[in-house]
C-alpha cells in the first residue's frame, strides 16, 4: 500500500507546486510543454503496465521518463525550426501508445491475456 501512497503524495506535491508558483509560459515554448506532457503520460502508463506484467525496472522507467520527455520537446523544437510540424507526429505516436497501454492495463486488471501492442 505504501508503494502507492508515497508516489501519490509526490504527485500531489508536484501539482501543488505547479499551481502555487506563478510560471507564465512564453508563447513559443507552450507547444513543447504540451508534447512533453504527452510523452510523460505515455511513460507513466508504460510503467504501470510493466509493473502489472512483473517487468518493471526502475532504471529503465526513470531514464525513459526524462529522455522521452526531453526528446519529445526537442523534436518539436527542431521541427518548428525546420518548418515541419513534428508536434503532430508526437501527438499521434504517443496518443496511440497511450491507448494501447491503457487497453493492456485494463486487460491485465481483468485477468485476461495480454493484447498485442506496438511495443
Amino acid at each position: 500500500m505504501r508503494m502507492v501512497i508515497i508516489p501519490l503524495i509526490g504527485l500531489l506535491f508536484g501539482l501543488a507546486v505547479g499551481m502555487a508558483v506563478n510560471i507564465r509560459l512564453p508563447i513559443q515554448y507552450a507547444a513543447y510543454l504540451s508534447v512533453a506532457i504527452l510523452a510523460a503520460l505515455d511513460t507513466v502508463f508504460g510503467g504501470i503496465k510493466s509493473g502489472l506484467q512483473h517487468e518493471f525496472d526502475h532504471r529503465v522507467f526513470l531514464t525513459g521518463f526524462f529522455s522521452n520527455t526531453l526528446l519529445a520537446a526537442a523534436l518539436a523544437f527542431i521541427g518548428s525550426l525546420l518548418g515541419i510540424d513534428l508536434t503532430l507526429a508526437a501527438v499521434v505516436a504517443f496518443g496511440v501508445r497511450i491507448f494501447n497501454n491503457v487497453a493492456t492495463i485494463r486487460h491485465l486488471f481483468l485477468q485476461r491475456r495480454k493484447i498485442p501492442s506496438h511495443q
Partner: peptide, 17 residues
C-alpha cells in the same frame, strides 16, 4: 523512482493547466 516521476509529471501538468 515512481515518486520522482509522479512529482515531475504533476508539476508539468499543473503548470500547463
Amino acid at each position: 523512482s515512481w515518486t520522482i516521476v509522479a512529482a515531475v509529471f504533476g508539476l508539468m501538468v499543473s503548470v500547463q493547466y
